[in-house]
Design a binder for these strands. Structure first.
Length: 352
DNA sequence: CAACGACCTGATAA
DNA sequence: ATTATCAGGTCGT
């Protein structure tokens, strides 16, 4: 299917910083493109300085020429919704820069970072995986969920695409052991229990229930999320911000904690995080008052700036191949570092 | 109610 | 080489 496009400058959205930075763990990077599997289609995106390009891949049988415009229109709607394209990010940056000197000091290097509007169930399960964990392993776990608990939708360029599993698919008691065997550790039980609870209390309307929290007051929605196994304050806040439209919520993770003590004079009572509910609330309300109504969005900029993976990121390099910086930290170990040729040979070159 | 240790795993640092 | 620490925390006591 043909490429479509929307006029979106890099100041409004920078895919290279938003998609791999730990909001969604399911975007597949290949060169300068990213692909993502929805329940009924795969969406591929890329961008240049002025435009966001996107393409739809549908499973067989392909739709008739008459149906095609409808399908592409659906993708356009999804793109606008998922990327919150109605939100003027550049205006928000200007506001945060006025309010906050430290934000201003990093915002040039890290422009175009915005909050995605994710599917609530995927968001919830993904962030249950995130506890006391790192982005590389979370990504592997989320992919394992898809390949093991959702049927393959289609294959493209030798890659199998699976959507995110349904709550029903993860609710069976047998799921826990399967997840343990897949290396999920203690999170195996949390995931199965959360899915089971969702299905038991809401049946086929489980997804609708979660989506309904979008129009529920923040505090009430948070209480609902905290009922799930493996969901504490931090994960609940991530879901509130990233899929339930609570733009003011500031999740306080280890990164934000570090930044808060270093640049905002929050007291780190000891050398170890020692994150008490009180300290969490202090940091949360403090940052919210500094940044304002869209504080959660500002948080995502700080978070990305503190990621080691982006420590050598150069915002002025629009075309990735013009980046002169030689092989930087070995800590950054991308799956696909081949920026041009993607001939899909046998991957897994982990030879020692 | 606050504090504290246990918890799966895999990748770096020490 | 072996051990300690860290990674977008939460749970049970």
């Amino acid at each position: 299917m043909e490429w479509q496009s929307l006029p979106v400058p890099l100041s409004q959205l920078r895919l290279a910083l938003v998609l791999p930075s730990g909001q969604s763990f399911r975007w597949r990077a290949a060169g300068n493109q990213f692909s993502f599997c929805l329940h009924d289609r795969v969406v591929v995106v890329r961008q240049d300085a002025e435009k966001l390009y996107y393409r739809t891949i549908l499973p067989d049988p392909q739709p008739s020429p008459l149906e095609l415009p409808l399908r592409t229109a659906e993708t356009t709607l999804w793109i606008n919704d998922y990327f919150h394209l109605g939100v003027d990010l550049a205006a928000l940056y200007t506001e945060w820069q006025k309010r906050d000197q430290f934000f201003a000091s990093i915002s040039t290097r890290f422009s175009g970072i915005r909050i995605l509007r994710q599917d609530p169930f995927e968001n919830l399960i993904s962030f249950i995986c995130s506890s006391n964990n790192n982005i590389t392993r979370i990504t592997k776990m989320v992919n394992a969920l898809c390949t093991n608990f959702a049927p393959r939708l289609l294959s493209e360029d030798g890659v199998d695409y699976h959507p995110f599993p349904t709550p029903q698919a993860l609710a069976s008691p047998s799921v826990e052991k399967t997840l343990r065997d897949l290396g999920f550790g203690y999170r195996a039980k949390f995931i199965q229990k959360t899915a089971q609870m969702l299905v038991e209390t809401h049946g086929d309307d489980a997804q609708k229930f979660l989506a309904g929290l979008r129009t529920t007051p923040t505090d009430v929605a948070r209480e609902e999320l905290l009922k799930f196994m493996g969901v504490g304050r931090k994960v609940a806040d991530c879901v509130l911000l990233m899929s339930l439209d609570k733009n003011e919520v500031v999740p306080v993770d280890t990164h934000v904690y570090q930044v808060a003590v270093k640049h905002y004079g929050l007291k780190g009572s000891s050398s170890k995080p020692n994150m008490t509910p009180k300290l969490y609330a202090d940091i949360n309300t403090r940052l919210a008052s500094i940044w304002g109504e869209w504080a959660g969005w500002a948080q995502s900029v700080l978070f990305a700036s503190d990621l080691k993976a982006f420590s050598s990121y150069d915002a002025s390099a629009n075309a990735a191949e013009t980046l002169p910086t030689p092989p930087p930290t070995p800590a950054l170990k991308r799956k696909n570092d081949s920026d041009e040729v993607e001939s899909t040979p046998s991957r897994r070159r982990k030879r020692t």
